[in-house]
């Protein structure tokens, strides 16, 4: 028991440093990626290729004054950034980076991630409500309806995968996909279900939903800067803003982890087991896959214009939910047959 507790504490510490470092360097990646997509070099001034930009930014954020607008509910205003950061951190506890590297393999890991993801949505509501700003208010209301609309297809798709794997434990889900990339859940051909053509689409749905869940372009309605200035974090400065920022990037990593674990075989090596190379070992593969997914996140963000709130809800209710529901039924049927 105490070992578990120790494990969890250690994991949280590691997670915080991992998330912090990750968030900082993901910002760098984002800016660099944005630059390269846009025919410019991105950050270049601090360190080689601007690699020292994140720590400099961090210092800047931390040393800035934390402004609290007049007339806000201070408690709510202050708690919102923490709420944005904390669920993402907790979720890392159950993410299996490899067979052995997992802080606490909870049997209902999938559920836990969803529970805390929903809490993340709440942080936006709290931030918007607490800011005493009309733009923030509109933004937070949008963010909540978006979260509600996108959690449904996300969960249905996840349930489909859970049904195939027969477990809510993320580690077990990966275990069923070991032994080569053709075993990954993304492919239609699976030994448990025979042939299910909708699996690639399920993957896409999950991917789209995780983009929407993390409030990223083209679904960044919450912080639609050309409409709502900066949305829910308009009034936040200094580390309040920094926490939102880190929370966003932590959520991106969680989203990418979930996508990789559910559909792309987690830490599994694409071809058999190339364990004798250090990088190709489990953690390496996992991180490689995550960063590939994150690259696509960045790529998408710097390509598309933003949807509108009704466009977003239309997509969810008219396309994603019916297709994922149908896939759920189909998978259930196929599971019965095979």
């Amino acid at each position: 028991m105490s070992l578990t507790l120790f494990n969890v504490v250690l994991a949280v510490i590691i997670a915080i440093s991992f998330v912090g470092l990750n968030a900082a360097y993901l910002v760098w990646c984002e800016r660099k990626g944005a630059g390269l997509f846009q025919r410019r070099p991105g950050p270049m001034e601090n360190g080689p290729w601007g690699l020292l930009q994140p720590p400099v930014d961090g210092v800047k954020l931390m040393t800035k004054q934390l402004l609290i607008p007049g007339g806000v509910d201070k408690a709510i205003f202050m708690v919102a950034p923490v709420l944005a950061m904390f669920p993402a951190l907790i979720s890392f506890v159950t993410i299996p980076f490899s067979e052995n590297i997992v802080a606490h393999p909870i049997d209902v890991g999938v559920l836990m991630i969803f529970a805390f993801a929903a809490l993340g949505g709440m942080s936006l509501l709290v931030a918007g409500w607490g800011s005493r700003n009309k733009y923030s208010m509109i933004s937070s209301v949008r963010a909540v309806s978006q979260t509600v609309a996108y959690e449904i297809p996300l969960m249905i798709t996840t349930i489909t995968v859970v049904m195939i794997s027969g477990s809510l434990n993320l580690g077990d889900i990966v275990q069923t996909q070991l032994g080569g990339f053709w075993h990954w859940n993304i492919w239609p051909l699976q030994k448990q279900v025979g042939f299910n053509l909708l699996m690639p689409f399920s993957f896409l749905i999950l991917f789209v939903c995780s983009v929407a869940e993390t409030n990223r372009a083209p679904f960044d309605l919450g912080e639609a800067e050309s409409e709502l200035v900066a949305g829910f974090h308009t009034e936040y400065s200094s580390m309040g803003f920094g926490l939102f920022f880190m929370g966003e990037y932590a959520n991106i990593v969680i989203g990418a982890c979930l996508t990789v674990i559910l559909f792309l075989g987690g830490w599994a090596c694409p071809v058999g087991d190339l364990g004798f190379f250090p990088f190709t070992h489990h953690v390496g593969w996992f991180l490689l896959k995550i960063y590939l997914i994150i690259f696509v996140f960045i790529w998408i963000r710097w390509t598309f214009p933003r949807t509108t709130i009704y466009g977003l809800l239309n997509l969810s209710w008219k396309y994603l939910i019916p297709i994922s529901l149908f896939n759920l039924l189909l998978t259930a049927g196929l599971l019965k047959v095979f």
Binding site: A34, F37, Q38, R39, R40, A217, P218, D220, A224, E225, S226, W302, T303, F304, P305, R306
Partner: peptide, 16 residues
């Protein structure tokens, strides 16, 4: 305009 609609990249191409 595309920036108004939330797409950043076309702005850079246009400015180029």
């Amino acid at each position: 305009y595309v920036l108004d609609l939330g797409g950043f990249t076309p702005l850079m191409y246009c400015f180029d």
